[in-house]
Amino acid sequence: MKKLSAAEMVERVVTGDRRIAARTITLVENEMDEHHEIMKLIYPHSGQARIIGVTGVGGAGKSTLTNHIVRKLRGQDKKVGVIVVDPSSPFSGGALLGDRIRMQSHTLDPGVFIRSMASRGYLGGLSKGTYDVIRIMEAMGMDVVIVETLGAGQDEIDLIHIAGTCLLVHTPNMGDDIQAMKAGIMEIADINVLNKADQEGADTSFRQLRNSISAAGFEAGAWVPKVIATVSMAAKLEDLKGIDELMDTIAEHDAHLHAGNHIDRVRFARVEQELGVVFKEKMERKIYNELKSTGKKKEYINSIIEGATNPYSVSDEVLNF
């Protein structure tokens, strides 16, 4: 097959060519030579999609909830992109859990584009490629992009820099966990979802979540996080609970962002985070390549091992601080 130029690939992505979009994402994720040129061309076609973040503890049912959100959005004739951030293989760096295993019901839907990405050791659960893949999905014409991340933790707050609406998924009998959660992870949630609400202890967990939010202070006009109880796994669709309420609350939060111009803050935070990631990547690569080519990298490492210096002093010297 003829090798396409960066401009040709982007042109095909913008027309909705899913096969070329998948190739483009692979190229970007693997940081091939054309990566930066492609993203320069993609950027003007991006930035319009609603971004929903879904995070929470392992086993909370994040993927099942994501499936339902996709189903409901498709019912509204929205095109949906889904990025599932999976644990990385320590050997290949690839995603261990396949997107088609998780979301088989949507794989043949031309209005849904699903991609698994490896976290590649990023503590926030988001590799730097995640930012670019969102942009690519936006350029494809996706109205909504859902980012489902690894289990919740303090460093998971990276998600707030990407998503306009963040969902934090809990399960019943998490009382001790809720109390022990660091403030950061609770603060990222625009909507707290108590999933598996048909299990024993759900009522108590629901009250604990409500109380933890009530105890926090919010400025006048600020969004007060909601708590929604859901049952996302059932033999029949009619036995599901809370999905419609969840969708209504997601829409309510989106309306809140636009009504008070809060969306400007969301967009600023997103671009600020992206800019920092790109700067960090380029500076790190430039500095390391120069140190390696001059042999200084090896000298610095040996000096640190011998106790003659330390990483902080080396970085000051290299950056002329």
Rank of each mutant, 00 (worst) to 15 (best):
F218K: 06
V227W: 06
G184D: 11
L237K: 11
E187S: 10
I188N: 00
E219C: 03
D176F: 06
K182E: 12
W223M: 08
A197R: 01
V227A: 03
M247W: 06
I191D: 04
V227Q: 08
P225M: 07
D254Y: 15
E187K: 04
P172M: 07
A235W: 05
Q199I: 09
A222S: 15
M181L: 14
E187G: 15
V193A: 00
F218T: 03
K236M: 12
A180E: 10
K236T: 02
K241V: 13
E219Y: 09
I250C: 07
A229V: 03
E245P: 01
G242F: 06
S205K: 01
D203N: 13
E200M: 07
K226I: 05
A202H: 06
N173M: 08
D239N: 15
L209T: 06
K226Q: 15
I191C: 01
Q208W: 09
A222I: 06
N192T: 07
D239M: 09
R207V: 13
N173Q: 11
G242W: 04
A229F: 00
A202Y: 04
G175N: 10
A235C: 11
T230L: 06
I191N: 02
M247L: 14
L246F: 14
E187N: 14
D254K: 12
G201R: 00
G184C: 05
T230S: 08
A216F: 05
E245G: 07
G217W: 09
A251L: 10
R207F: 11
L246K: 07
N195S: 04
D198M: 00
T230A: 08
Q199C: 10
D239A: 04
M174K: 03
I213A: 08
P172Q: 02
D239S: 06
P225E: 09
D176W: 01
V231I: 15
D190Q: 13
D176E: 14
K226P: 05
N192Y: 14
K196Q: 08
G221N: 04
P225R: 05
Q179H: 11
G201W: 00
V231L: 14
S212K: 06
Q199Y: 13
N211G: 03
M247C: 05
M233N: 14
E245L: 15
A189L: 01
G184Q: 04
V193S: 02
L246C: 05
A220K: 13
M186L: 13
S214H: 14
K196R: 10
I191P: 05
M174P: 00
I228W: 06
D177W: 08
D176M: 01
E245V: 05
E252V: 01
V224H: 12
A180W: 03
P172R: 00
K241R: 12
N173L: 05
K226R: 14
L194F: 04
N192C: 08
M233R: 14
P225Q: 12
D203K: 11
K196G: 00
E219N: 10
S205N: 02
G242H: 06
S232D: 03
E187A: 13
L246P: 04
A180H: 12
I250T: 04
R207S: 13
A220E: 15
R207C: 09
M174I: 02
M247K: 06
V224T: 11
E187F: 02
I243R: 03
A251T: 09
A251F: 13
A235D: 15
T249S: 12
K182D: 12
A180R: 12
E245H: 08
